[in-house]
Amino acid sequence: MRQLDLLYISLADQQLYGFSAGQLLIRLPVSTALNGPGELNGSGCTPRGLHQIRAKIGTGLPLAAVLRGRRWTGEVWSAELHGQFPGRDWILTRILWLSGCEPGQNRLGNVDSFRRYIYLHGTPDSEPMGVPRSHGCIRLRNADMLELFDLVPVHCAVRIDEAPCPDWAAATLS
């Protein structure tokens, strides 16, 4: 599959749509913020607008590798590990770290997505997809995160929007 040049994340659909040269190539379920959309630091909301992939973290790590502070802890998620840390916001497998592209909306000041550590990342497979449950990030199934990670380059555009994916775009899935 060719590299993607745009990710469209629909808060309404709780779906990620991946495009290359205007053609929809991939659609994946996600989980965005339980607190809904919003840009303010500390809000626990998913920021809207145009972003880019600023960094890709976790190349070569095992599926369900546990990441804290953007570093592998050496652990791999399991139900037993989850039981030891029941309240942890699990960041697993890979990280695609977002940076806002719109000053005053999602870049700089108290609305800076990069400084808020907004990621696309894997999550335990026991967590539901298609419903808002995160603390602001965009969660994906671990297998989906692995697939997506290899398809997006650094600086890939990411649009996070409250609208559903347009019908014309959804109809182009090959």
Rank of each mutant, 00 (worst) to 15 (best):
75 E>P: 11
46 T>S: 10
74 G>D: 09
48 R>T: 15
66 V>P: 10
64 A>T: 14
53 I>M: 01
64 A>F: 15
46 T>N: 02
51 H>D: 04
46 T>E: 04
73 T>N: 08
57 I>M: 01
74 G>P: 08
53 I>N: 00
70 R>L: 10
70 R>T: 11
63 L>E: 12
48 R>M: 15
51 H>K: 00
63 L>R: 14
48 R>K: 13
55 A>G: 03
52 Q>A: 11
67 L>N: 01
59 T>V: 13
42 G>M: 06
64 A>W: 15
60 G>D: 05
66 V>N: 08
58 G>C: 05
73 T>K: 05
50 L>M: 12
45 C>R: 15
70 R>V: 10
52 Q>W: 03
68 R>I: 15
53 I>H: 00
42 G>S: 08
54 R>T: 05
69 G>R: 04
68 R>T: 14
51 H>F: 05
68 R>Q: 14
52 Q>P: 01
51 H>Q: 02
71 R>M: 12
61 L>W: 12
61 L>E: 10
69 G>T: 00
47 P>K: 01
76 V>Q: 11
58 G>A: 05
48 R>H: 09
73 T>Q: 05
50 L>G: 09
46 T>I: 08
63 L>D: 12
76 V>D: 06
67 L>S: 03
75 E>V: 08
65 A>M: 07
42 G>R: 06
46 T>Q: 03
72 W>F: 06
54 R>V: 07
49 G>V: 01
70 R>Y: 11
62 P>K: 04
48 R>V: 15
52 Q>C: 12
66 V>I: 11
43 S>P: 09
62 P>N: 03
60 G>S: 04
66 V>M: 06
65 A>I: 07
66 V>R: 04
75 E>Y: 12
72 W>G: 07
62 P>Y: 02
51 H>C: 02
45 C>Y: 04
55 A>S: 12
68 R>W: 12
66 V>E: 09
75 E>K: 12
51 H>R: 00
66 V>Q: 07
44 G>M: 10
53 I>R: 00
69 G>D: 11
56 K>S: 01
60 G>K: 04
42 G>V: 07
47 P>A: 00
48 R>Y: 11
76 V>P: 09
53 I>Q: 00
55 A>I: 03
48 R>C: 13
54 R>S: 13
74 G>V: 07
70 R>I: 10
42 G>I: 07
72 W>K: 06
68 R>G: 10
59 T>L: 13
49 G>M: 06
73 T>A: 08
46 T>C: 05
45 C>T: 13
57 I>D: 01
67 L>K: 02
44 G>Y: 07
69 G>F: 04
55 A>H: 13
63 L>A: 06
56 K>P: 02
67 L>M: 10
56 K>I: 01
43 S>F: 09
46 T>P: 03
45 C>I: 07
58 G>D: 05
61 L>R: 08
61 L>P: 05
59 T>Q: 13
43 S>Y: 10
49 G>S: 04
75 E>A: 13
68 R>Y: 12
76 V>N: 05
61 L>A: 10
51 H>L: 01
46 T>A: 03
43 S>V: 09
59 T>Y: 14
59 T>H: 13
54 R>F: 14
55 A>N: 11
69 G>C: 04
58 G>E: 01
46 T>H: 03
71 R>H: 14
61 L>K: 03
73 T>M: 08
57 I>N: 00
59 T>D: 14
53 I>K: 00
71 R>E: 15
49 G>W: 02
76 V>S: 05
71 R>A: 14
